[in-house]
């Protein structure tokens, strides 16, 4: 996994448009969900590692999304749609990593084959975190200033 700052910054840029304002929080959540469900158990209790294998897989995440959506009475379809697209953005970034051990089991439980494009080691994006933070901050400041100027001039 790239770090969650990288995942969140990607989600931020994909969802920055005002048209996504109402439901973008679900996309953000989806963008970090595979890691926040699997990694804490794996890191804090490595003896349970084999129990966490299923979690970071597409099928588990789809079922979890359906479960999570049950806790929303209205706009359930939007919850599902935004969460799934967020999860997709997460898996898309994960796909570009390389490992010397196995990668991710995309077709679990139907196949144990793992596949990755292998462009960077999982820790490499950590070096870029200051860049992501600066880019997000600069975008936010620019958009807010722009909004203020349009309000004043109109």
């Amino acid at each position: 996994m790239p770090d969650l700052v990288t995942h969140t910054a990607t989600a931020y840029f994909l969802m920055r448009s005002d048209s996504f304002q109402r439901f973008r929080v679900f996309f953000y959540l989806g963008a970090i969900l595979p890691d926040i469900l699997a990694r804490p158990i794996h890191i804090m209790f490595p003896q349970f590692y084999l129990y966490t294998i299923a979690i970071h897989t597409p099928l588990f995440m789809i079922l979890f999304t359906l479960l999570f959506a049950e806790f929303f009475q209205t706009f359930r379809l939007h919850v599902i749609k935004y969460l799934l697209f967020g999860i997709l953005s997460h898996f898309f970034l994960d796909l570009f990593q390389k490992h010397i051990t196995d990668g991710y089991y995309w077709f679990f439980p139907f196949s144990w084959r793992s596949f990755e494009i292998g462009l960077f080691w999982p820790e490499l994006p950590v070096r870029l975190v200051p860049v992501w933070i600066l880019l997000v901050a600069a975008t936010e400041i620019t958009l807010r200033l722009k909004r203020r100027f349009t309000r004043i001039s109109s």
Binding site: L4, V5, V25, L29, I32, I36, I100, E123
Partner: peptide
Amino acid sequence: RVAKKRRAKIWLSVFPVLLIGAY
């Protein structure tokens, strides 16, 4: 393979979780 920045990665990843949770 030595995962040199793994600890930093774990700690940095806590902030987005708190931020998105708060949002």
